[in-house]
Amino acid sequence: MELTQIRLLVSDFPSVYRFYRDTLGLKPQFEAETGPYAKLTPDTGHAAIALQARTHLADVLERLEAAPAGHRALIALRVDDLDATHAELTSRGAEFLRDPSPMGDRMRVAYLADPEGNLIELQEWLELRDRGQ
């Protein structure tokens, strides 16, 4: 078994697509601003975030519950320089729920949400402790 992607079911496809493409700067596999499906990847790595219109999947499954309330997913993205990424995304219009701050002694994190409330955790990994400690 191989994980190929994490897919978010979204109600406002164009808005969420533009957020991941324009605000976060992920690269679309192909342009699909109106949906019903898109796959976007960061500059490095093989992981992908896919978006699918809730109405499209509802048609496929012939049923789908109404959009759930509150946060439904958390996507963790590692960055080399959290402060620089925070500044760049803020300049693109991102509004952070939590600015960069330590999480334990192994990483720093910042949080924002996409237009449908899915959480995004930006992680800057700090130097790991020696295994002997």
Rank of each mutant, 00 (worst) to 15 (best):
L97E: 03
D105M: 12
L82K: 00
A38I: 10
E2N: 12
P28T: 09
D130Y: 09
E65A: 15
V60N: 08
H86A: 03
T44H: 15
E65G: 14
L74C: 13
L61Q: 09
D12C: 07
R21C: 06
H56P: 03
E124C: 00
P36M: 10
E95Y: 04
I6F: 13
L26W: 02
A50R: 10
A94L: 00
A58G: 09
A48Q: 06
F96M: 01
R129F: 10
M103R: 08
S11A: 12
R106Y: 09
L3C: 05
A110H: 01
F30A: 13
A76R: 13
L57E: 14
V79A: 04
R131G: 05
D59N: 14
A47W: 09
E2S: 15
L9E: 00
D22V: 02
Y111R: 08
Q123T: 15
I6G: 13
G25H: 08
D80Y: 05
L122P: 03
A32L: 02
G132L: 11
E124H: 04
T34C: 11
Y111F: 15
S11I: 10
G132C: 10
R92S: 08
L112K: 01
L77E: 01
A67Q: 12
D114F: 06
P100F: 01
E65W: 11
Q133W: 13
A48I: 04
W125H: 07
Q123R: 13
T44C: 15
E121W: 06
P68A: 09
A66C: 08
H86Q: 04
P14F: 03
T44N: 14
I6H: 07
P68K: 04
T55Y: 11
G70W: 03
Q5W: 12
P68M: 02
E65Q: 15
T44G: 12
T23F: 02
H56A: 15
E33N: 12
L51K: 07
D114A: 02
H86M: 00
H56E: 08
L9P: 01
Q29R: 11
Q133S: 11
D59T: 12
D43L: 12
G45A: 04
Y20V: 06
A87M: 02
L122T: 01
A48M: 10
P68Q: 06
R21Y: 01
